[in-house]
Design a binder for these strands. Structure first.
Lengths: 415, 415
DNA sequence: GACATTATTCTAACACTTAGAATAAGTCTT
DNA sequence: AAGACTTATTCTAAGTGTTAGAATAATGTC
């Protein structure tokens, strides 16, 4: 407020309107000027004007006409899917997942790479990203020049202002200037952030958060966290760590969490926490496969579905813990939608659904509970890669006149 | 996003710029066109233009000149404090507090009314607000016509869309159309909300939240809660109940809270919760004055300050609970500032300060903790009444051309 | 071919902000 | 007291937008 903020100008209005149109085209795959007028609330003149500019830019194409019973046919518009490509890379602790998309975010290629469980140096990760990117392009025979940007998800907090990966817990990284390192090798626009944020973006654009203003996209996997969307925008917080819901304390003085604190939600409803609950019930449970979290959680899910008492007990206790966390979240944030995602969520939450809902209802206040629609993510695709690609695409779409500006500069240089 | 939102127009830009100038004038008491240019980042032309309009409207006045060593003197500008008045009313469970302010939010009069501890009907409260308002005006010899609006804080959730007070716990109210009832009696613009929101607004404008984008204003009194400011604006949530932090669960299966749930933060760090902690330590503690919460908490504070072991134990345990709630809040919201307010906060937090900070540090992640400045509120004034008046004043200032528009309408009627 | 209907583009009006020129209001110098 | 200098404020014209309504386009029907 006291800082000399960038001024708001009429250009910002145009930009926002433009992005609104592009959003709709992305979500609906195709549309018409008339429909866009209704959807955006803009005048037909404005829509025609902006669409005209996008057609000239090559960002949008006319894909056909719709002939009505009577009257002039309506031109059908769509994003120029082939006008470029974008990439989402999900760097996790045990793998790197690469996905290539066109400008309508249709998946064109994907590629997986397992990481060794040992410590890994930043340089190695950079190298793997670079070579994996090349492999991905080769797979789809995509020209490098067509890629408008790469979104990269990295574990741990990321600082946008400096481009620094602040802390990657399992690898012991601290303050790695990852963005600069990558920029040196990949001369393409980059967008880095952590998977919670990207998952939330994917849900907001393509999942249960479509058209929703306020949402929490909860991740229930090995780790636990949330990405928050407020007023239709991803909320970063003051140092880009908002949404660290997994370290909400639900049992004062309870289990020790990997963050060093006691009683964190993650220590109860993250995969290792759930397995700990299992072992507390039965130290030698046959559902537990040491060293294989995924298999163990799957075993619990299967057994519970078949009515196994021990598995059900684990699921029920987990529901109690989870509902405490969800209730607090709903009370505090008062979101329209809460979407539960990631693999543990997908495996276990459907089994505990009824119980979970009634527990959340009990553990939250009436009004916020009534306002919140709780759901399990229905995204078929890899939400982190998709969200990463979406972020970089959004940056690309937002900036107008990329091409024409460049042309202008070239003209300027010719003189 | 799919609803036909109101369009953004250039008027909105003007409105925002106007409000920015008025904000600065309100915060600084007086300023100059030059200074406003620097503070807002607008051009001198725009500032002069907007200030010109406000002078014509009578909203701003030139209060003098500042004669520099050299050059043309600078005109000093200020809000036209005497141009109107606004009122903040804080309806609590045991009292109603009325305050009258001028347009620079300088307090002109105040008035208190004790409420009986019995149940009270909506009609009675409406009546008391109306007569109290008259008393307040009489006290300051203020003409009723000069009041531009009344901000009213009521306990429990309030629904802006319908003007309904959803639920006032102690009085057993449910879905009372309070706004309509008041509007019928007071033909003056009204703004209703609950005290958490108004306290946050007061802190954001005049307390530790000045110039801060993201903030949580925590209230530690009989009840516990927070008001959230995000991106410089009060955050309401999807059904205007965001910030219900007091019912965050910190001890799964713990104490029963008055909300019916178990283990809520409020059951541990609200005044009754703290007294329960005291009685758990010593069932017949001399620090406990049955039926007099305030006195009991004061007694604990005094005894702890003098080194009384039992009081210190109560304070320490409270610090442990409170830090769990604060840590979770800081992790989840990642605010720039956390301000602890209300009477229990004022009495006990300074005593536990060092301990509390180190506990919060331990119970939150490093980055969000480092980003958050935690502080005890330093507002001398009644923050709820002030925030209520501020809200209504802001609405008044935001709308341009109130007077001139009215004039136009009158002209229109003359024809 | 005239008419009806719907889509799209064109035109002129209107609402802003703002760079830079012009003007205003002082002090300082001579 | 006139002119130089300095800073504040206003004025002017240009630039960027949106948009209502007129004009035009494209189709089917009679």
């Amino acid at each position: 407020m006291s800082q000399p903020k960038p001024r708001t100008t009429t250009r910002d209005i145009r930009q926002a309107n433009r992005l609104q149109i592009l959003h709709q085209l992305l979500l609906r795959k195709s549309s018409t000027r008339q429909e866009l007028t209704r959807l955006t609330g803009l005048s037909t003149a404005t829509v025609a004007h902006l669409v005209g500019a996008m057609l000239a830019e090559g960002l949008v194409v006319e894909t056909g006409v719709e002939i009505p019973q009577i009257g002039r046919p309506t031109t059908i518009l769509a994003l120029n899917a082939a006008g470029g490509a974008c990439v989402g890379v999900d760097v996790a602790e045990t793998y790197i997942h690469y996905e290539l998309y066109d400008l309508m975010l249709t998946n064109l290629a994907r590629y997986d790479l397992a990481l060794p469980s040992s410590k890994i140096e930043p340089e190695e990760v950079v190298q793997l990203i670079v070579t994996g990117f090349d492999t991905l392009l080769a797979q789809a025979a995509m020209a490098r020049e067509k890629v408008v940007g790469i979104g990269i998800s990295i574990p741990g907090p990321f600082e946008h202002a400096t481009g620094v990966s602040v802390f990657a817990p399992t690898w012991g990284w601290a303050n790695v200037p990852l963005k600069a390192m990558l920029e040196e090798r990949l001369e393409i626009p980059l967008y880095l952030d952590n998977p919670l944020k990207f998952n939330a973006i994917a849900e907001a654009w393509f999942g249960g958060g479509r058209g929703i203003d306020t949402m929490a996209a909860v991740v229930l996997g090995t780790g636990v966290g949330a990405g928050l969307v407020i007023d239709g925008k991803l909320y970063h917080g003051s140092s880009n760590t908002a949404g660290e819901w997994g370290h909400t304390i639900i049992v004062a003085g309870g289990r020790t969490c990997r963050c060093g604190n006691q009683g964190c939600l993650e220590a109860y409803v993250g995969a290792p926490g759930i397995l700990q609950t299992l072992l507390e019930i039965d130290r030698s449970s046959p559902l537990h496969f040491p060293g294989d979290q995924t298999r163990s959680i799957e075993a619990i899910a299967t057994a519970a579905a078949q009515g196994d008492a021990m598995a059900l007990e684990v699921v029920n206790r987990t529901a109690v813990y989870l509902s405490a966390g969800l209730g607090s979240l709903i009370n505090f944030l008062n979101p329209e939608v809460v979407i539960i995602g990631s693999w543990v969520g997908a495996l276990l939450v459907p089994i505990m659904w009824e119980k979970l809902l009634s527990l959340v209802e009990r553990q939250s206040l009436e009004r916020p509970y009534m306002a919140a629609r709780i759901m399990v993510s229905d995204m078929a695709r890899n939400s982190v890669s998709l969200g990463a690609a979406t972020s970089v695409l959004e940056e690309y779409l937002a900036k107008e006149g990329r091409r024409s500006k460049r042309r202008l500069t070239e003209k300027g240089a010719e003189r």
